[in-house]
Nucleic acid binder design. Structure first.
Lengths: 335, 335
DNA sequence: TTGAAAGCGCTACCAT
DNA sequence: ATGGTAGCGCTTTCAA
């Protein structure tokens, strides 16, 4: 591998001058620069980013630590982050902890010296831990985990607002006996969505203790919940699943069980993954705009790095909107 | 940030000893090691991977350059790569060229000094260029682009075999007037799939010049193709799209136009993205096992880095299998 | 077993 | 405008 030193020697200048020329600094004579560039091209010189990072104390790399890489949610998220990061000419270092929480700390440590800042989406409520960990010496933006008592900047989706909207929507469309399929018990979003569901059921219908079936956000749990529901004999006229994956599965299971989706039984999800519009009927859901979420996180971090993070963008809460489709056409139309 | 020097000083040893102790080398007295580790923990020392990479001339990072990040294909691919890479304790550096071919070379250069090796999925037939480029001084594995006249190791899916299978399958299920929606004209996979389709139509049905509609693998083009098809008045009883995204769209469009999918008109795709099994009827497609593809690429690169790449694994061609679902239930059953 | 010191490839400061 | 040189934080000979 040819280094800058060889280029300098070959061009008959010092490494300092070579460095300046190659980095487009102004204080280099035009002929000198031309010669250096020619030599660099001839020798096929490619700067060693690692070495450069070491001296500049800046890596131009953004690290992302995700709980997992499964499904469309993460792919959309990464796309959003990449979009913003790439726009600033920086690169993306991807780390996951494969669901294992113990790996989080290690994953973060491994980032030291490789990235300028980190976007972390903790699997659960690791936020507090992170804030305590003194090792967190570099800029961090939390994703979807509004840190309680933490001072870390964050970007998240307003799960509560979304769940409220959708529950109201189901009621408006004629549902009265709504069943909720929740996410993991230790997941903040899942908890908020379930709580919001309860609140609206109480406020709008006076139902203090609505049916909530356990789920885990993953494939398999939507179907399981429906099987349990049907077996239980509980009466229902709508299902609100805490995310789209479960909602789609629930929809399929209900359809297979002979229910007419959208009229006899309304179904709604949360996230608006691409799949939601392809199933039939289309799935009514809460549009999180995942890509936007990723972009916002990246932009917050980028601003933080530049020291331009103003107070108001310190914490960004994205308020989702409804995406109404066929799965909640309405009970009235069933008649 | 605390460096190894501070740890050494605080522990009353030389940096050399500190380094050895922290890296678990054997030639350090137990008490010395204990003390150093205690100090490191107390000072919350985290090694600087960048600096370490520089001296060791090894980054423990694998770079991946993708044409884009859109859709499930790439998310599954990344997941596969990450799986293999993570298993070896290495990290993943992600680069994309956002469809712009000019960015490829630059993206590769930017990797110098950051990664030990590269997995590249060129948008088109950049393989040759890459092989020529002398800058490619580090280990590279090509993804899905069997380099013509290139000596780079590669992993790819046998598009031809897959397309042959599925065309035969459609014919078996009673289709005679099959229309193909192709991918981008400059995409190798797209070209091979179309060619295989032609060959089988010729061989099995004696149709030398089957209808092939242009597409681009992306959302929008499946629908467009169907609109064109319906407008043209061309007779058809099956549609084989070069990838699932277009196939699903085509399916929806045809259904909206009043066709019974799976009986009146058969539809098939290519890739087997998760979505394929959720639409209804399920989409018959070619199972590429994208995750496996990513894993294989990563493993090839890892072996290459270890100097363990034997001749036969130099080029891996994954032969896909059919995933038969409702969208090709069969024309016979229509009766 | 431990320490001193020479780099890894580059940038940036201080001279000239 | 150009050159010499001191690091960036770490690993790794070479000596002791």
């Amino acid at each position: 591998m040819v280094t800058i030193r060889e280029v300098a020697k070959e061009a008959g200048v010092s490494v300092a001058t070579a460095s300046r020329a190659l980095n487009g600094m102004s204080n280099v004579t035009e002929p000198t620069r031309a010669k250096i560039e020619a030599v660099a091209a001839r020798l096929n010189y490619v700067p060693h980013s690692g070495a450069r990072s070491l001296t500049k104390r800046q890596t131009d790399t953004i690290g992302v630590i995700l709980p997992d890489l499964f499904g469309e949610f993460f792919s959309e998220l990464i796309r959003g982050i990449d979009k913003a990061v790439h726009a600033e000419g920086k690169t993306l270092l991807l780390g996951t902890m494969h669901g294992r929480q113990e790996e989080t700390a290690q994953a973060i440590r491994a980032m030291r010296g490789r990235v300028d800042g980190l976007i972390i989406m903790p699997p659960e409520t690791v936020a507090k831990t992170l804030d305590t960990e003194p090792l967190v010496a570099f800029p961090i933006v939390m994703l979807n985990a509004p840190p309680k008592g933490s001072t870390l900047p964050f970007v998240s989706i307003d799960s509560r607002a979304g769940a409220e909207m959708i529950t109201r929507h189901l009621i408006e469309r004629g549902a009265r006996k709504i069943v909720h399929i929740s996410g993991p018990a230790n997941n903040r979003d899942a908890i908020e969505r379930a709580a919001a569901f309860r609140d609206i059921m109480k406020a709008e219908l006076g139902i203090a203790d609505p049916v909530i079936l356990p789920g885990d956000f993953c494939e398999g749990s939507g179907e399981k919940a429906i099987v349990a529901l049907l077996t239980s004999g509980i009466a229902f006229d709508a299902v609100f699943a805490a995310n789209d994956v479960m909602a789609v599965e629930a929809m399929m299971s209900l359809r297979d069980a002979g229910y007419a989706i959208g009229t006899e039984v309304l179904v709604a999800g949360f996230d608006d993954i691409p799949l939601a519009r392809y199933v039939s009927p289309g799935l009514t859901t809460v549009r999180s705009e995942i890509t936007k979420l990723g972009e916002a996180a990246a932009r917050t971090l980028l601003a933080l790095l530049k020291g331009e993070l103003d107070e108001e963008s310190h914490g960004t809460v994205i308020v989702p909107r409804l995406a109404v489709r066929g799965s909640t056409a309405g009970r009235d139309e069933a008649a």
